[in-house]
């Protein structure tokens, strides 16, 4: 099987990687680039654990053909903040207890950053619409909604 060259911008760096033509973006991130922050929860675009941002928009990378991403700008959780220097959204999720098992967390956080980039003070309903493609089985969402509100406040203060 012939590998194809895929080039895109990943977490603000130009990347070139040889991929199988039928690989998904999630396969490439996890297998070829060793970025395992995006998770495979269902493999069919139903749970949002594989969410990454493509040109600033949340996308289910598990059903996104890798070669479709050619020339695009991809952001993954690894590109956000580090443990020593958390992004305000990451910090809010941690401080507000919006993280339990943590498996859905990278996707939740990325979707939240995309929302807050567009809408600096979203209403509760807007938060719910934005996060409706990210399933969480642990938290019951209450603390996630709080975390998004706190993150919005903290970003606005910056």
């Amino acid at each position: 099987m012939k590998l194809e060259v895929l080039q895109f911008e990943l977490n603000a760096r130009k990347v070139s990687v040889r991929v199988k033509p039928d690989a998904t973006l999630l396969d490439v991130l996890r297998e070829d680039l060793d970025l395992t922050g995006a998770k495979r929860g269902c493999g069919e675009g139903e749970c949002g654990a594989c969410t990454v941002l493509i040109d600033g928009m949340p996308v289910d990378s598990c059903i996104y053909p890798a070669l479709k991403a050619a020339g695009k700008n991809i952001e993954t959780i690894e590109g956000l903040g580090t443990e020593d220097n958390l992004h305000p959204v990451q910090k809010a999720f941690l401080d507000e207890g919006a993280v339990q098992c943590g498996f859905c967390t990278p996707g939740m956080i990325l979707t939240t950053t995309a929302l807050l980039a567009k809408n600096q003070s979203p209403s509760e309903e807007e938060v719910k619409v934005a996060l409706s493609g990210n399933l969480c089985r642990c938290t019951g969402y209450t603390k996630i909604i709080n975390a998004v509100k706190v993150a919005a406040r903290n970003i606005n203060k910056l």
Binding site: E96, G97, Q100, R137, C138, T139, G140, Y141, T142, K143
Partner: peptide
């Protein structure tokens, strides 16, 4: 906070 997390998630 963890107790609340359990209550919310369980509910």
């Amino acid at each position: 906070m963890a107790v609340e997390g359990q209550i919310e998630g369980g509910s």
